[in-house]
Design a protein around this nucleic acid. Structure first.
Lengths: 116, 116
DNA sequence: CAATTATACCTAAGAGTTTTAGGTATTCCA
DNA sequence: TGGAATACCTAAAACTCTTAGGTATAATTG
């Protein structure tokens, strides 16, 4: 797995986008989903994930719903209308960032029309 | 300009790649270069840039050469052989990261073959 | 069936990177 | 001549994430 430094700043974007796609998810599910989807290349640590979920909720971007599976609680998160808006803006932001990085890292590719 | 959160972790990669491309550059030049190349979307703050240059030098990835323009000093940085290696690895790392992010943010694009 | 693994939540201290907010000095230009 | 641009630098604070715990239930496996 590559250095996690790069992950910084993308956690919120990832969470918002996944909830946008999947409708609702719980914390543990999100962490497993990302791990599986990227073949273990990208792992969200719980120490970062849970506090971020709480923060997004307190900011009004997420709402929660508690579900019990037997005696074990799951906390499902889903987007609020404000969360929907924020998702769009975060994704756009990431796209612009990625484009800027490509411009810096591969300047020639942007001149002669080569893809990648 | 977009939030700088995303920039975290990419500073070293940017510096190494620019020196790889341009041969040698000085700190102020790097900051202006990035700003111009990205139409101001991406700005490296000096408070982050200079300490990072010093760190890369102390790690043996960069070497310096002082040049005086009149009485004003410029400190040119360039890659050492170790810096060359590190550049390759950092770029690869970023590419993998960007690919993983695309997979998460745009899963359908990766299934039906659409580009972007 | 006891022990390990997986599920599922959480927090606090510390590490690491960047921003903010300064500082110094030279050169150019209006 | 005074402000903007050039060119370097640092220290404190802010912010995000990792590390390293903690609790508890359910499933698996030897």
């Amino acid at each position: 797995m590559f250095s996690k430094e790069l992950l910084k700043g993308t956690l919120k974007t990832i969470i918002l986008r996944l909830l946008d796609e999947q409708g609702k998810m719980y914390g543990y599910e999100i962490s497993q989903f990302v791990k599986n989807m990227t073949d273990g290349k990208l792992e969200l640590t719980e120490g970062a994930l849970y506090p971020t979920l709480h923060k997004l909720e307190s900011e009004g971007l997420l709402k929660t719903e508690k579900v019990f599976i037997g005696k074990r609680a799951r906390k499902y998160y889903s987007l609020t209308p404000a969360g929907n808006k924020e998702t769009i803006s975060k994704i756009k932001e990431f796209q612009e960032f990625a484009a800027a990085m490509q411009m810096i890292l591969f300047p020639k590719a942007n001149l002669d029309g080569r893809i990648k």
